[in-house]
Design a protein around this nucleic acid. Structure first.
Lengths: 334, 334
DNA sequence: TTGTACGCGTTATCAT
DNA sequence: ATGATAACGCGTACAA
């Protein structure tokens, strides 16, 4: 049990070689005699040597560390409600570890373009993976203009100068709308803040599908004040006190969907019987909620892999194109 | 927009001082003339200078980075189900950022004592916060023996040589049992793997409370094969095919509780009417599930703060004592 | 194939 | 209050 920390110099001395030889042996450099390499590796293992990664980072171009930014502003304090973002985080974590990249989880306080630049300048991370786009499109454009390497989980407005990976939001919206039209729904409610690029795309898809209806219909919108469960519950209750209950609802997340169902329950309204509801994300809980949620599915592990792949491309100055992952409607009991 | 990266040397030259003076000015060292400090800070700000944290880490004792280890073995691949661990993560993240500590999210592959030592030796992190104890008690003891700094979210068996922060598991179990006794329940089911220290403690608390009953009762146990929703659902269905339905259930998590309720539903059994159920954690979804879950609450932000506080104490060679956070029974509709 | 010499950017020691 | 110098541990020209 060596308490003393071993350096490369120590290993060199113990193996009767020079320091650079140790470096080469450990780094898998071709020009080193097999016998020498074995010797070095043996000594290193025996003494529990590992390279000082800070020294390494100081010397090399990349830190092999990537910051992942959760949208903590919508998951604040005691209002953390949507498990989807964490499923995404798990996907990214797995994908990064496959590429031997460290994952620095962003401090919740990080928010503006400058603090991100600062993290790059201080050589803590090579770049960023933003999980959630929110209404930060402008900041992302600025960041991209400044050459900060990053990718975003979110929607692609088409003319963005940065790379996104996301659900096919337009298609997701379309699929929901298609279902509504098939069931001849006429009083449709869209729940979500269309300032978020993703949600705007979904609404556009929804409208496109609804336009195929050969009957009259009405489309309303509720924004929800934030991402918390209670906020949705309340705006739903408000709406119901003002107008007729919708017979079809497209919610921007499964979490929101659950809140909405509870609110409608209290008004004696039941899914299928009184209304159709489509959620989004197919979080683990969606299939076990009661009623089982009809929703739009996304593969979060594929998402993670794609995000990391694109990020690496950005880092290497290729300009990868944004892309979407398969997006399917999962019909259950709503 | 300086594309070139500025070093401390550059700042020194531009401010007409020496490098150490810049270091002192930036580091808030007392022995530096206010005028000089201002000058240095101005130059630094103007040129967008930030210290190279790798160089700093190379030179200093601490990296100010802490690895957080999620129990990925129970949240694997597509089976991630329990949001509680992520609520805890958010709590820890917040607490760390308050202390200006970086959070390295552990690669899912990390598992044995050696890989943790390696992370310390390579000076990537100062230590670990383990979110989840699982059945790794032996490994934790070994790690502590080797002097690796860490704390664990989990249960304290009493004779552990490492520091834990956790729910008051015994009390949690006791509160559940108390409720069952009050309602004269006789056919009690404990769901959870008692190889996990936390769950063993809960079961002991449960038994203690049940022992106060002045009537005959029976206590069964189901382990659940893993932490996934489906596994719980299935073991529940199995149990029901073999014996009488329980009239009181204590589940080790809210997620498990939801699965169990669904299984019982399919057998036509309703909470309150046919059985009482107490979950654990009071995750955000618990109060919005239908039926609203009766459960044991824990404050995850307090938990995060406490974990970080204790970790810092461990790092400074104080041996902090393990502690528990307030643990309450929240009675809802089960 | 291996070794020598140097630089990466910072902080600490010591002298002034 | 400030500056000169060394040291942290590694990788890489370049020389041998």
């Amino acid at each position: 049990m060596p308490k003393k920390i071993i350096t490369m110099d120590d290993v060199a001395r113990l193996a009767n070689v020079s320091k650079p030889t140790v470096s080469r042996a450990l780094g898998g450099h071709p020009n080193v005699k097999p016998k020498t390499r074995e010797k070095v590796l043996a000594v290193a293992r025996e003494h529990g040597y590992s390279v000082n990664r800070n020294a390494k980072k100081l010397r090399e171009k990349y830190t092999n560390t990537i910051a992942v930014i959760l949208d903590f502003s919508s998951h604040r304090k005691h209002r953390i409600t949507d498990p989807f973002i964490f499923e995404l985080l798990a996907g990214v974590s797995e994908a990064l570890s496959i590429r031997n990249q460290d994952l620095l989880l962003s401090p919740p306080t990080l928010s503006d373009a400058n603090s991100y630049k600062e993290l790059i300048n201080s050589r803590v991370v090579d770049g960023f993976i933003f999980l959630g786009q929110g209404s930060n499109d402008a900041m992302f454009r600025e960041l991209a203009k400044q050459g900060v390497p990053f990718v975003v989980w979110g929607g692609n407005s088409g003319d963005a100068n940065y790379c996104t990976v996301g659900s096919d939001n337009f298609l997701g919206g379309y699929l929901a709308g298609e279902r509504f039209v098939q069931h001849q729904k006429r009083n449709i409610l869209f729940v979500g803040n269309t300032e978020h690029t993703e949600l705007r795309l979904r609404r556009e898809g929804l409208e496109k599908a609804l336009a195929t209806a050969d009957y009259e219909y009405r489309l309303d919108e509720v924004q929800g004040h934030d991402f918390s469960f209670n906020a949705h519950y309340q705006s739903m209750m408000e709406l119901l006190s003002k107008q007729d209950a919708p017979d079809a609802i497209f919610a921007y997340s499964d979490t929101a969907a659950m809140a909405i169902i509870n609110a409608l329950n209290e008004h004696g309204l039941e899914p299928i019987k009184n209304y159709l509801l489509v959620g989004y994300n197919d979080i683990a809980q969606a299939s076990h909620f009661s009623p089982r949620l009809t929703t739009i599915r996304q593969d979060t592990f594929l998402a993670g892999a794609l995000l990391v792949e694109k990020f690496m491309a950005v880092l290497n100055d290729n300009a990868p194109i944004s892309s979407t992952i398969p997006t399917d409607l999962i019909v259950r009991s709503t």
